[in-house]
Nucleic acid binder design. Structure first.
Lengths: 220, 220
DNA sequence: CCTACCGATCGGTAGG
DNA sequence: CCTACCGATCGGTAGG
């Protein structure tokens, strides 16, 4: 997890995956199952989403799904990795953005996400479930946030000329990341009342100006 | 839903509920079931939490739980209302805060929430699940956010001398509310790395200063 | 508030 | 990748 463009930022994967010839070891079937799994988990959640429904959308029986992924839990893990790969390929060839450029990239990502409610819903539902006891996606999200916090903290420090170790910088980074996730929940519940891009843009602008204006202070 | 102190802000209800004599119609048993339900839903989610486990923690069989609440869905609805009432009683006697005072109240609420991971986890898990299809808590959260957006927008407008109809004011309110929810997910996954209060405080300060400084602009 | 039971659904396995 | 099956668990009901 090193890209800022992680997960709720992927391009529709079907195009890239289906355009190529069948990958080694029936990768096409696997991709179809993963697409079906994402839509089912988005609509029902992981706990409540059944292998039978995933299988039906992928055109097979639930035993067929298990043949490909071994267990429901391994299917979820594969889905999380699959989405990550799709996102990384979006950035391939370009250099990973830094400083103010990364902050602008975050805003563009949020705006793009407004066009992909399905992916956002799957992400939000799985994130919400992930804090339950022994949830298989917990480690994924924990390390995702760890990476995001590092990236955004660094970018904010560079963009404002402050030290990344200052507590204000870290608080600001955590707040921006939190806002992006919380806005998705609000938006999914009432899309007309929430402009995720506008809110993110204003928050980032307000925070960077605040950090430029206030005196360097806290350290740990 | 008119209070800002809603839900992830309640005082431990057991004290108040158990101190009084049995309420009319076995309210004490109901409260014990509701407390058990909150802990089970926090740990397993609503979809994955079973009536049998709730019943066990409340010291009865699952048929007993159904005797009191009729169905699992009605138990959830009752739980959401029950938490709301506990929060409202916290504010009783005081006037509902407004303007800058409400913004300070939000920060205090976030700081207090850092002492009650169980309630925060139940809230976060149910919020995440609520965006799934036909989830019984969906209406609750939708109207909760509607109320919060109105309150925070009004408070921000009062605190900065701007018009509550401006798009910047609404974007700022949505961003602050979103940050509070998103920070909870981050915090639940890694409590040591996230200071919810510090992040909320910085965001509110940055946003209010930004709104005071920038020219009145957008209207709808 | 319990015992006893119901039909439905679940994830996973066997064996091909 | 399927048919057939397994044990387990689920929410809810009957009847007291």
């Amino acid at each position: 997890m090193t890209m800022p463009d992680v997960w709720p930022a992927a391009a529709p994967s079907s195009g890239a995956a289906k355009a190529t010839r069948p990958q080694k070891r029936s990768g096409k079937r696997r991709a179809e199952i993963l697409d079906a799994a994402m839509s089912v988990f988005a609509e029902r959640g992981y706990a409540n989403g059944s292998l039978a429904e995933i299988a039906e959308r992928a055109g097979m029986t639930h035993a067929g799904v298990l043949h490909h992924f071994g267990s429901k839990e391994q299917l979820l893990i594969a889905l999380l990795e699959y989405r990550d790969e799709a996102d990384v390929s979006t950035l391939e060839g370009r250099h990973a953005p830094e400083g103010a450029e990364l902050l602008e990239h975050l805003i563009r990502t949020v705006e793009r996400n407004e066009q992909r409610p399905g992916i956002i819903q799957a992400y939000s539902v799985l994130l919400g479930e992930s804090v339950t006891d022994t949830h298989p996606a917990r480690a994924f999200f924990t390390s995702r946030f760890e990476g995001l916090r590092t990236m955004v903290t660094t970018a904010l420090a560079e963009a404002t000329g402050r030290d990344p170790g200052e507590s204000d910088i870290r608080a600001a980074a955590n707040g921006i990341i939190g806002a992006m996730d919380g806005l998705q929940e609000q938006w999914l519940l009432d899309k007309q009342s929430v402009d995720m891009g506008a809110a993110t843009r204003l928050l980032i602008r307000a925070v960077t100006e605040e950090l430029r204006a206030s005196p360097p202070d806290g350290r740990a």
